[in-house]
């Protein structure tokens, strides 16, 4: 006896398509098989994260939220778009970040959507969206690129804009939201020697 939904219930939710039955073949993975930095030949292998080149920074948008709110975000991310089984709202968001942020300038292709994660700690649960930046970008440039990308999306595809806006609203309207820029510590220079512009000096 199986537990959970029946196949027909799942089909009613996901829609029907071609049948697919595949054997799951075990494999041994080691750290050597999980390239993350500087391996453009193997971009798609690191847990679905596509990175060409080192990350210069990661923009983290973190919000504590109720389980129901997190579930709504999850539903949004996995909601399918069109007949393509791999096309979801999340892939649309990833395309927006990768293809549209900073488009048309020197920084084109700088941003990568890394994913939206749930952080389940002992004390709290938070949802975190991560956007990787492969080149140094100021906060002003980052904010301006979002404004430009969303304005262009609104003009070109109002429906798609409305979907993206719904997600950003759910995430950014939480009172607890924090937007942080994470810099790779090994790449920012000598902190003691005051070489990072944003940090306190040793004085």
């Amino acid at each position: 006896m199986t537990t959970g939904p029946t196949p027909r219930e799942l089909l009613a939710r996901l829609g029907a398509g071609e049948p697919s039955a595949t054997e799951i073949v075990s494999e041994v993975r080691t750290e050597a098989m999980l390239p993350f930095f500087n391996d453009p030949s193997n971009q798609a292998q690191a847990g679905g994260i596509r990175i060409a080149g080192s990350l210069s920074a990661i923009v983290s948008v973190t919000a504590e939220m109720s389980w129901q709110r997190a579930a709504a975000l999850q539903d949004w991310l996995t909601d399918r778009r069109g007949a393509d089984p791999l096309a979801t709202n999340e892939t649309e968001l990833a395309e927006l970040v990768s293809d549209t942020l900073f488009a048309g300038g020197d920084l084109a292709g700088t941003a990568r959507y890394l994913g939206t994660f749930i952080v389940a700690g002992r004390a709290r649960r938070t949802v975190r969206m991560l956007i990787g930046l492969t080149r140094p970008v100021s906060e002003a440039q980052y904010a301006a690129s979002w404004a430009k990308a969303l304005a262009e999306l609104k003009a070109a595809s109002p429906d798609r804009f409305a979907r993206i806006r719904a997600f950003l609203t759910m995430l950014l309207e939480e009172e607890s939201v924090q937007v942080e820029k994470l810099l790779l510590l090994s790449a920012v220079g000598d902190l003691i020697g005051h070489s990072i512009a944003t940090g306190p000096s040793g004085s």
Binding site: T6, P7, L10, L11, S20, A21, T22, E23
Partner: peptide, 13 residues
């Protein structure tokens, strides 16, 4: 171990 999409699962059931 195999993974079945809902259509294949339906056929199997």
């Amino acid at each position: 171990l195999h993974t079945l999409n809902p259509v294949s699962w339906l056929i199997l059931t």
